[in-house]
């Protein structure tokens, strides 16, 4: 298996440039980019500042792993509640500014944290799906906010864990680190110094909707049901943007967004790319397909 991470000092500038390019190329997406762009940028800052996996890394049983048992199957991510207060005071005001309809609820959430009605432990638990209600905060808003709050820490820990399994075989369609479902795929052309001809298409990486880990997977197969029948697999794309597509499957009625970076001069951040592919996702939904896993903006 090959895994891929994107830690590089220019990444924030790359995110901002990709967002600007999206606005210029697809003006109709400007409101979405304006709303979600600051969230993606702040998530990046939090991820870069996060400490990652603390202490000894878990021991991976190569045999179990190769049979499909992901790294955190018996444990889960480390507790990040100690960092959530500071992160929340950075992220939630940005979200309140970007999503005015939620502003009041998000401010209520901040107030609940400040007066102790919402503890950081409860917040972290809510980030992993444990039900928790705050008076005056809609359940959907709560889920959205805490998921985005916890995500940078999860992603940073996953970056450290991915190194453990880089050279181990993994043929599953769930994430090798956390068992999450992919919400997009990326075809990446990896430069190598081999003396032989290099494939133009690049390898297919599935990207985890939970921790953003990327892992290689075969190109021609539905990641949901494994279907490899050409007649069942459909590719939806816009001819003017051939590097973006939605891979859909008639058998299980799911689709997965795909970014083909082989022809791109500047490779955009995958989250920005997925946001840019919103019209494609919409087209797929209209044709009766459902996403394998959602992006934060998926329900819009």
């Amino acid at each position: 298996m090959q895994t891929s991470t994107h830690a590089n000092p220019r990444a924030l500038r790359d995110i901002e440039m990709a967002l600007e390019r999206t606005k210029a190329e697809i003006p109709v997406l400007t409101p979405m980019v304006t709303a979600f762009g600051p969230l993606l940028a702040e998530r990046f800052r939090l991820r870069e500042a996060a400490s990652g996996w603390v202490g000894p890394l878990p021991v991976v049983d190569a045999e179990r792993f190769s049979q499909g048992v992901f790294v955190l199957a018996d444990s889960g991510f480390q507790d990040m509640s100690a960092h959530l207060s500071e992160a929340a005071h950075g992220l939630l005001p940005i979200m309140a500014n970007s999503f005015p309809a939620m502003a009041q609820e998000l401010n209520t959430l901040i107030a609940a944290m400040d007066n102790g009605a919402l503890t950081m432990d409860a917040l972290a638990a809510a980030g992993f799906g444990e039900a928790f209600t705050v008076p005056g905060v809609n359940a959907e808003t709560m889920d959205f906010a805490v998921a985005e709050l916890v995500r940078p820490f999860v992603e940073r820990q996953a970056q450290d864990l991915a190194k453990l399994v880089r050279d181990l075989p993994w043929r599953q369609t769930i994430c090798p680190i956390c068992g999450g479902t992919p919400n997009m795929s990326v075809l990446r052309r990896i430069r190598n110094d081999s003396e032989f001809i290099q494939a133009h298409g690049g390898r297919r990486f599935l990207r985890c909707s939970c921790c953003a880990t990327e892992w290689t997977h075969k190109r021609i197969s539905c990641p949901s049901c494994g279907c490899e029948e050409p007649d069942e697999l459909v590719v939806l794309s816009d001819p003017s943007r051939p590097f973006e597509r939605a891979d859909a499957c008639h058998r299980c009625k799911t689709f997965l967004l795909c970014l083909d970076t082989g022809e791109l001069a500047d490779i955009p951040d995958p989250d920005v790319a997925a946001l840019t592919m919103l019209p494609l996702a919409h087209q797929a939904r209209r044709q009766g397909f459902v996403p394998l896993a959602e992006h934060p903006w998926g329900g819009l």
Partner: peptide, 23 residues
Amino acid sequence: DRVRANLLPMCVKSCAMGAMNFG
């Protein structure tokens, strides 16, 4: 025209040996 559309120059895209690189 391609670079402004964020695409690799055609010669770079076509190179199968990794001799041509763009960035």
